[in-house]
């Protein structure tokens, strides 16, 4: 348990030492709110029911968790290049402990960033969901952080270097964002895209956030689109599966181990 605490504490220390990352993670959602908000508002079909910027709030928080947790977990790739992962792997702890520590660290970072953004964003939009709504939103953020952190760790364990990072952004982060319901309802997407929505952890996180923050507009079709229980269950399944896969990948010889300990072959 102490090892998990150590891994989490290191993630936190690193994050706090990187000012640029701190500032950009807090500023990013507001850049989206201003620019994407202004643009999409003009074509938003639900304008009569809800102000588009308010509709965007759950999606933006989901986006903050995604960038926060997924990218934090991806830092494992940097650890491997810098050799720190070797220190972790030579410690007397199980690979699953390493995976859990990394995922919890990523969850903590994603949650902290999302909470900080939520305080500003909800005040700015005068969106007051009440105590129950806020509690559900917090749960949605933590669960999304777990699921996305675990997913990030799986990606990190399969990637050889940080150069693949652009690929991850283009083929994972952006599709996940556009198919999450963060920017528009997913119910009108075609059947194929709809299948993709259902394998997208962020979609469940954003949907749960909509239940939490947009309950007032549930009747207009611009609240949550899936049952909240399904959202919670799906996020838990993604987190558990991601952790199990990441632990197996970290433990496999010839995977991270082989890359971390460059063999003479």
């Amino acid at each position: 348990m102490r090892a998990i605490g150590g891994i989490v504490a290191r993630e936190l220390l690193r994050f706090l030492r990187q000012r640029g990352r701190l500032v950009s993670s807090l500023a990013r959602p507001f850049v989206w709110l201003v620019f994407a908000g202004a643009g999409f508002a003009t074509v938003f079909a639900g304008a009569g029911a809800i102000d588009y910027r308010r509709y965007l709030a759950p999606g933006l928080l989901g986006m903050v968790v995604m960038f926060g947790s997924l990218l934090a977990a991806l830092s494992t790739v940097t650890d491997r290049e810098a050799g720190v992962l070797r220190m972790v792997l030579v410690a007397p702890i199980r690979r699953s402990t390493v995976a859990l520590g990394k995922t919890l660290g990523a969850t903590l970072l994603g949650t902290m960033q999302a909470v900080a953004v939520a305080v500003l964003l909800l005040s700015l939009l005068q969106l007051w969901p009440g105590p129950a709504g806020l509690l559900l939103a917090f749960a949605a953020i933590v669960l999304s952080g777990l699921a996305l952190g675990a997913l990030g760790l799986v990606l990190a364990a399969t990637m050889r270097s940080i150069e693949n990072f652009a690929g991850v952004m283009n083929f994972v982060v952006f599709p996940m964002l556009f198919l999450s319901g963060a920017l528009y309802p997913v119910r009108r997407l075609g059947p194929w895209l709809h299948v993709l929505v259902h394998v997208n952890p962020l979609a469940y996180g954003v949907d749960l956030l909509k239940h939490a923050l947009l309950a007032e507009w549930a009747g207009t079709g611009y609240g949550g689109e899936m049952p909240p229980a399904l959202d919670v269950a799906a996020l838990l399944v993604f987190a558990a599966a991601g952790l199990a896969i990441a632990a197996a990948l970290l433990g496999r010889e010839g995977g991270v181990t082989r890359t971390a300990f460059r063999s003479p072959a």
Binding site: A3, G6, I7, A9, R10, L13, M87, A91, P92, I93
Partner: peptide, 12 residues
């Protein structure tokens, strides 16, 4: 901080 991190990994 590096040594503290290692100490936790080794459960000290």
């Amino acid at each position: 901080q590096n040594l503290r991190f290692a100490a936790r990994l080794w459960n000290l």
